[in-house]
């Protein structure tokens, strides 16, 4: 594991009715990938999901906050329509306004994944993408 990998992490934060997802890392790309892992962790243990099938995602938005909103909502759309869970997120290119990625996962297996909850959508509550001293943070509350 490189030192950059060690700096990457995700976490959840509290919201009265729902739950917040937060990705942290040395780059904006890392923070976005970690936020996506935090999203999966709302539903199930990301380590239980095998990265078998690859799906391409491309999104654009007027600024980086909206880009995170779009990124997470694109993943939620794929989760919902394909009945899949995702555990590996590879962002191939990212700017303030566009993103191109491949996400990997498998079809939901109820007995294996024991999914706790559907995510309805990423919201603009606590929506923030920021950088401080070389640490990037990407977060928002998701509605479950």
């Amino acid at each position: 594991m490189t030192s950059a990998d060690r700096q990457k992490r995700w976490e959840h934060f509290s919201h009265d009715a729902d739950i917040g997802v937060r990705g942290i890392g040395p780059t904006m790309k890392d923070a976005f990938e970690m936020a996506a892992t935090a999203l999966t962790a709302v539903i199930t243990n990301p380590q239980s999901v095998r990265p078998q099938t690859a799906i391409s995602i491309a999104c654009s938005a007027p600024d980086r906050d909206f880009l995170l909103y779009e990124w997470l909502n694109h993943i939620i759309y794929e989760l919902d329509t394909r009945r899949m869970l995702f555990s590996k997120f590879e962002i191939e290119s990212i700017s303030e306004t566009t993103l191109q990625a491949t996400i990997y996962g498998e079809t939901v297996d109820l007995s294996h994944h024991k999914p706790a909850v559907d995510v309805k959508g990423a919201t603009m509550t606590e929506l923030k993408v920021s950088e401080e001293n070389g640490h990037w943070l990407a977060q928002c509350v998701v509605d479950v």
């Binding site: 906050d65 309805k120 959508g121």
Partner: peptide, 25 residues
């Protein structure tokens, strides 16, 4: 859920274009 997602974004952008200052996105 998707209608909520679609229009939240559309309305936030429309408000910003119209110069409507929102206390919360």
């Amino acid at each position: 859920h998707q209608i909520g997602t679609d229009f939240l974004k559309e309305m936030a952008l429309a408000a910003s274009r119209a110069g409507l200052e929102l206390p919360d996105k």
